[in-house]
Every structure is written in structure tokens, then in C-alpha cells.
């Protein structure tokens, strides 16, 4: 069972957390101005990154706060956690098993679904 570092509480066991999907997919400012395809990208489409992905996590069995994290989808290792209001950190080199794919990262995490901004 992994330890996940809650930016408010510190390291806690993963069962205290729930996953909230890709981070930095803001709710479009004017949904009515989007066509069906643009809207569908917001509702249904997310990156399928092999490597580091910025994700939303919720410390549901702890402080109940949402936060963001950079996590390698191959090794599951977290390289950074940050509060929702904070900017996404630059790609952090990962250590440990499965880190070989950690390079192709930051560009994919910001590329999509911000059409409404």
C-alpha cells in the first residue's frame, strides 16, 4: 500500500485517498459558446499519458481536501504534490522503479481541454 503525501496532512496510506482524474482541466468559462465537439472534449476526453501525469486527488478519509499531484502512470510513483491553487510544478525527475518513461511529460498534461478559457 503506497503512501501518498497530502500537502495538508503529510504522508498517509493510499486507502485514505480517492482519485479525481487528470488535473488542470478547468470548467469552461462559457460552455454555451462551445460546439458539441469542444464540449465533448471537456466532458469525456482525458490524456492517456504513459509517464508523469498531473492528477487530482482527494484526501477523503483525512482532511477531505482536494489537491494535485504529479504521478508516473507506469511506476505509480508520486514526484510532487501541490495545493489546488498552486501552479503545476515543472516536470520532476523520478527516482526508483519504472522511472524510465518519466521524460515525455509536461507537454501532454496541459495540451487539451482548455478550449473554454
Amino acid at each position: 500500500m503506497q503512501l501518498i503525501e497530502c500537502p495538508w496532512c503529510g504522508p498517509r496510506e493510499e486507502v485514505e485517498f480517492s482519485y479525481g482524474g487528470q488535473a488542470h482541466v478547468p470548467y469552461p468559462e462559457s460552455p454555451a459558446e462551445l460546439d458539441d465537439e469542444q464540449w465533448a472534449h471537456y466532458v469525456f476526453f482525458r490524456d492517456n499519458t504513459r509517464g508523469t501525469l498531473a492528477e487530482r486527488w482527494n484526501h477523503g478519509a483525512g482532511c477531505r481536501r482536494w489537491f494535485n499531484a504529479m504521478r508516473d502512470t507506469v511506476s505509480y510513483r508520486f514526484s510532487a504534490v501541490y495545493r489546488t491553487a498552486e501552479p503545476m510544478p515543472a516536470s520532476v525527475p523520478l527516482t526508483g522503479a519504472g522511472s524510465s518513461s518519466a521524460s515525455a511529460t509536461t507537454s501532454t498534461t496541459t495540451s487539451t481541454t482548455t478550449t473554454g478559457r
Binding site: 479525481g20 487530482r56 482536494w66 489546488t84
Partner: peptide
Amino acid sequence: LDWMEEWLQTEWP
């Protein structure tokens, strides 16, 4: 409750 918290915290803090 989770749904309301999620929007409040992540979209409309």
C-alpha cells in the same frame, strides 16, 4: 456532499 465539495474546492474556491 463530496460532489459539492469537489466543485467548491477545485473550481470555485
